[in-house]
Each structure stands twice: as structure tokens, then as C-alpha cells.
């Protein structure tokens, strides 16, 4: 008879522990932010100024991620390839990118890599003309202006994240048992066909949550492109803060914007993860 109270105590403690207090904190921040944006004129002004950057931020993240996926898949296949050239090239790419800070890479690719590429293309054009394959001024109009800073920023992010995604794809492919490749090959399918129809569908499914998490990380890293004067929400909020000296409004607004995007995306990744686990 005397034993029931301790049990109910334990139950209460368990419930307290089970509540996601951190999530409650995030919700409180959102409630406070919505209330502030609805009631305070300064914040409304900052919000309206900064929101024009949302399109650039979202566009940059989506396009760069799409290219990073392709690059990452290619490099990931290279990392497990038995072809010495392809394998080493992929390894070199991954090690180079992972060994340099992302901020430096963005400067380097946008301000050194792209001009070098343009020079190379132009030299190639001159060579084509000199050996008479194309006539006249072919490719000579192809200058540095052909690449906008936003384009270069996307290029830089794609190359950087391609190296991270390569390692995810590699891990995913290596998580699939050897027997799957053997079964495919024993049926007469080539290495490429077995990869495409048997290994990759399973590998990609296994790494979907990891790919999702890296997309969230990339959304945050688009802030780095503001150093190239690309008018994303970070750059626009800096401009706003600089011209009005309302630092608090500017950086509260931009932080809430990032938080909104990343929290929603993270929740989606969690839902996806849970659903995939249930299907296993």
C-alpha cells in the first residue's frame, strides 16, 4: 500500500525529463520574434529591408547543392573506383578541399580560380584559331564579366560541398554488402549497371539523412558568400546595420531568418530519418 507514491514520483520525474526543453526554447524565441516583428516599427523596417536577400540565399543554396550532389556522387564513385587515375583524382580533390578553410576557398575560387579558368578558355580559343579550327574572334569576348559574383559564389560552394558529399556517398556505397555487387555481376550486369540499378538506390537511401543534414549546413554557409558582396540576407543585413547603426534589429532579424529555415529543414530530416528506419 505504501509503495505507490514513490512510483508516481518517478513517473513525474520521467515526464519532466521527457519534455524537449530545447525545442520549447526555440518555440519561445519564434513567438517572441513574431510578436516583435508585428509590434515594433524598427524591426518591421529591418525585416522589410533584409527580406529582399532571401531569394538570393535560397537560390544560392539550392543551385549550389544540386551541383554539389553531382560532383559529390562523381567523386564518391571515384574514391571507391579501382581505376588508379580516377581514384587518385577524387582523393586529391577531397583532401585539397577539406584541408583549406571554406572562407579562403570561396575567396580563392571566386577571385583566383575563375579568372584562371577564363584565361585558360581564352588561350584555348586563341589556339583553336591558330590551328584554324574556328575563324576570327571566337571566345575572345569571353571575359571575367561572364561570371557574376553570385555565379562564382555558387561555383565555390558547390566545389567545397562536393568534397563533403563525396565522403557521404562513399560511405553509403561501402555500407552495401559485397554480395550485392557479386549478385549483379553474376547475372551479367556490368559494374556500371550494377552500381546504377542495385548499389546506388540502396546507398542513397541509407545516406539520405546525412545528405539532408549537409544541406542544412550549406544553407548556413551561404552566409560566407557575403564576403563577395553577393546580396544574400547576411550581406543585406550588414548593409542595413551599417547605414542605420541599428545592429540589434539587423542581426536579430537575420538570425531569426536563418533559424526558421534551418529548424524547419532539420525537422524534415528527422521525420525522413524516422520513416526510413520504420521501413527497414
Amino acid at each position: 500500500m505504501e509503495q505507490s507514491p514513490p512510483i508516481s514520483d518517478e513517473k513525474a520525474a520521467l515526464q519532466l525529463k521527457d519534455i524537449s526543453w530545447w525545442f520549447l526554447g526555440i518555440i519561445l524565441i519564434f513567438v517572441w520574434a513574431i510578436y516583435t516583428f508585428l509590434t515594433k516599427e524598427n524591426y518591421q523596417e529591418a525585416f522589410n529591408f533584409i527580406k529582399v536577400g532571401i531569394q538570393i540565399t535560397v537560390k544560392t543554396a539550392l543551385i549550389a547543392y544540386a551541383f554539389a550532389l553531382m560532383l559529390g556522387l562523381l567523386a564518391g564513385l571515384g574514391r571507391i573506383s579501382k581505376n588508379i587515375f580516377f581514384n587518385n583524382l577524387a582523393r586529391l580533390y577531397v583532401e585539397l578541399i577539406r584541408g583549406i578553410p571554406m572562407l579562403v576557398l570561396i575567396f580563392f575560387i571566386a577571385l583566383v580560380g575563375v579568372p584562371m579558368l577564363v584565361e585558360g578558355i581564352n588561350a584555348f580559343g586563341v589556339w583553336l584559331v591558330s590551328i584554324g579550327i574556328v575563324a576570327g574572334e571566337a571566345l575572345s569576348g569571353f571575359g571575367n564579366k561572364a561570371f557574376t559574383m553570385n555565379g562564382r559564389a555558387i561555383f565555390a560552394l558547390a566545389i567545397t560541398y562536393g568534397a563533403f558529399l563525396a565522403e557521404i556517398f562513399r560511405a553509403g556505397i561501402q555500407s552495401i554488402g559485397r554480395g550485392q555487387m557479386e549478385a549483379g555481376r553474376s547475372l551479367g550486369m556490368s559494374y556500371g549497371q550494377t552500381m546504377q540499378h542495385i548499389i546506388l538506390p540502396q546507398a542513397v537511401r541509407n545516406v539520405l539523412p546525412a545528405l539532408g543534414n549537409d544541406f542544412v549546413a550549406m544553407v548556413k554557409d551561404t552566409a560566407l558568400v557575403s564576403v563577395l558582396a553577393v546580396r544574400d540576407i547576411t550581406q543585406v543585413s550588414r548593409l542595413y546595420a551599417g547605414s542605420t547603426f541599428r545592429f540589434r534589429e539587423a542581426y536579430v532579424t537575420v538570425s531569426v531568418m536563418y533559424l526558421t529555415i534551418t529548424v524547419v529543414l532539420s525537422l524534415l530530416v528527422q521525420v525522413m530519418e524516422r520513416r526510413l528506419r520504420k521501413n527497414d
Binding site: G179, Q180, A183, R185, S186, L187, G188, I198
Partner: peptide
């Protein structure tokens, strides 16, 4: 020759100890 090898493998069925079915 990979192509010839693939063609021959298609003519030779193989059944494994652990089945190796494609789970997806």
C-alpha cells in the same frame, strides 16, 4: 575483356549461400 565476360556471366546462373537478393 569485360564485355565478353559479362555476356558469358549472363549464361551462367549463380545461387549464393546468403541469397544476395536485392532488398530494395
Amino acid at each position: 575483356n569485360e564485355k565478353a565476360l559479362n555476356a558469358t556471366r549472363a549464361e551462367v546462373g549463380m545461387v549464393f549461400q546468403l541469397f544476395n537478393l536485392f532488398p530494395h
